[in-house]
């Protein structure tokens, strides 16, 4: 089994050194006791990256993630515990459920980033979750235009004018979406590079906070933009 790679974060979760529930020998993050080979519960403190045996990074090769998930499913799935003790069956069930949640979360890049931000949240408390004023204004205005268009006669002069405006807005918003995705990708790469360097000085800490804050910002803006674009697509096709 892969050992989790420690990340530079201050709230880095260490696998608790603990005892095998069955034979009381020491287990340190392994999923099977070395002495009695009984399955060990995935601890509540284990983060999803660790659960899948991956370093806490934002860029993950989907093929590697899938391979890890399949490998661990083969280790934990209740199908393979039917003739084991009840205690082992219960652990396998919980472990498999946790593993499935971990995989689902990390498979999607956005969910993965959001999850990581939550893990690292301790040091970025000041992160704002409402959209910046200009975006907020823009969305409100667009919502009004949408309402007017929906209520009015589509073939009238005003209807056509409103539609043209909505189409232009949609184009602009979609470009903005693409920009956000690009920037997010760049931030992911920067974040991972910072983690790889493993520095812990003041400069690294500042850089870390900056990246986290910016990612949080984009992720929340992205949600607002995505919702309004969905509305637009639904109305004007």
């Amino acid at each position: 089994m892969n050992q989790p790679t420690p990340s530079g974060g201050s709230r880095n979760v260490q696998m608790a050194r603990s005892m095998c529930w069955h034979c009381q020998s020491e287990v340190a993050g392994e999923y099977f006791c070395e002495r009695c080979v009984k399955v060990q519960p995935v601890s509540k403190e284990t983060d999803y990256f660790t659960c899948l045996g991956l370093p806490r990074r934002l860029t993950i090769d989907p093929a590697v993630l899938e391979a890890k998930y399949y490998e661990r499913s083969r280790a934990f799935h209740p199908d393979f515990y039917l003739n084991k003790t009840e205690a082992e069956q219960a652990i396998s069930l919980d472990n498999a459920a946790t593993l499935n949640t971990a995989y689902r979360t990390l498979r999607d890049p956005v969910q993965r980033a959001e999850y990581l931000l939550d893990l690292e949240a301790g040091s970025v408390k000041t992160i704002r979750t409402s959209p910046p004023a200009d975006l907020f204004e823009e969305i409100l205005e667009l919502q009004d235009t949408l309402d007017a268009y929906r209520a009015g006669d589509h073939s009238s002069e005003t209807g056509r004018r409103l539609r043209a405006r909505l189409e232009a807005e949609r184009g602009a918003l979609e470009r903005r979406q693409a920009e956000m995705e690009d920037e997010l990708q760049k931030l992911f790469v920067e974040w991972d590079a910072l983690q790889d360097r493993g520095e812990a000085d003041g400069h690294a800490r500042m850089e870390r906070d900056r990246l986290l804050r910016r990612m949080r910002e984009i992720l929340s803006n992205r949600t607002y933009v995505k919702n309004i674009v969905n509305d637009l697509v639904e109305t004007i096709g």
């Binding site: 919980d94 498999a96 459920a97 499935n100 949640t101 995989y103 689902r104």
Partner: peptide, 10 residues
């Protein structure tokens, strides 16, 4: 738990 979540799920 949304539909199409892999089981076991909690």
């Amino acid at each position: 738990i949304p539909r199409n979540t892999t089981i076991p799920a909690n």
